[in-house]
Simulated assay, not measured.
Amino acid sequence: MEERITNYQLVVMIILFEIGSTPLFALGSSAKQDSWLAMLAAAAAGFFLLLMFVSIQRRAPEQDIVRLLRICFGKVAGSVLGVSFAIYFAYESMRNVRDFGEISNLTLLNTTPKYITMFIILLLASYAIMMGVDTLFRVTETLLPIVAISYGLLIFLISIAHLIHFDNLLPTLEDGFKPVLRAAFPDMVSFPFGQTIIFFMVWHMLPEQKKVKKLSLTAYTIVSLFLILMNIINITVLGTTLAANSTLPFLQTVQLIEVGDIFERLDVLVTLLLFLGLFVKMTTFFWGAVYALAHIFPSLRKATWLVIVGSLIFITSFLEPNYSVHVWLGLKFSVKLYPLFQVIIPLLMFIVIRFRKIPAPKATSDI
């Protein structure tokens, strides 16, 4: 029997997934004080991308991305593309595993080898996946209040500590729209907004298919506004130069908090928030890769694919020699390839599926 999720679980997952590791980086820093405008432009583009994704899903509400690809491009080509998407999901998960290891090594666990923390987090993710979709989504339900209250507290303390200087946002559009658009496209669209492509693996599990569009777009709008706010906070507190050159800008922002002699040294809280975000995004991509491969190659059990994909993620996470190369590869190179999966193939699907007769859904086994 197909597993199902609730409306609230979908909203929570979209919010926590999109937050993910995004506060780790000074996105759009090439636009300087207009980086928040670049994020706004990217979020708007991502909104229309998500609208296209949902439109595709509504044509075949009971299908995941593997079946949708087969409907659009045929069984063979669709399966090949399905494997490609599974590899893409696994690669995204690998990047988050490496982020987790590096951040823990830089902050809380300086003397612990990063391969140990990376192995432990993969084990936890594997356990959540083995327990099924319901367990994974219940975890996010538990985490949302913690994340919301913690970020709210940090933003409040930053405000009352008089760290925000809105002069750092001026002059607006000093060099026109070109730097803003160059920063937004394709990099910031690809990360984080285009990553909603993973929800093709989720939407068919919602019992009330008519609410997919409303719930997804509402959750996306909420988290987009939050990410724009976080970008503004980093710029107004650190300034453009420091924010652009900081490894972890929001962490550096929070380290400046001093309210009386009570609220200070809250960087541990930020690190824990980043860990939660990384775990949700990493596990979701990991689960998406396993789920897709289990559909394409049903002769192998889910547990087998879990071991295969998990092992590949762990091994490949060490291919990059250091964290600087890892960040450069992710923010300067990989984001240029993501539009193939986030824009080009979905656009072809959108065109084809509008004219393709959709077969009636078949009963599927629980994956």
Results as ranks from 00 to 15, higher is better:
E3F: 07
N7L: 04
Q9R: 11
I14H: 02
I19D: 08
I19A: 04
P23G: 00
S35D: 15
W36K: 14
L40R: 02
S55Y: 03
R58Y: 05
R59H: 04
A60P: 06
I65G: 12
L68W: 13
L69N: 09
G82Q: 11
I87V: 15
Y88V: 07
R95Q: 10
D99T: 11
N105M: 05
L122V: 06
A128Y: 08
M131Q: 05
M131Y: 01
G132T: 00
E141V: 01
L143Y: 10
L144H: 13
S159V: 08
T172D: 12
D175Q: 11
L181C: 07
A183Q: 03
P186V: 03
V189L: 07
T196Q: 00
F199E: 00
V202E: 10
L206T: 04
L206D: 00
T236C: 13
L238R: 03
A244S: 09
E264V: 14
T271F: 15
L272V: 14
L273M: 07
T284S: 09
T284Y: 07
P298Q: 12
L300F: 11
G310Q: 06
I313Q: 11
F314Y: 10
H326P: 04
H326E: 06
G330E: 00
S334H: 15
V352L: 07
I353F: 04
F355T: 05
I358F: 13
P359N: 14
P361C: 12
D366I: 06
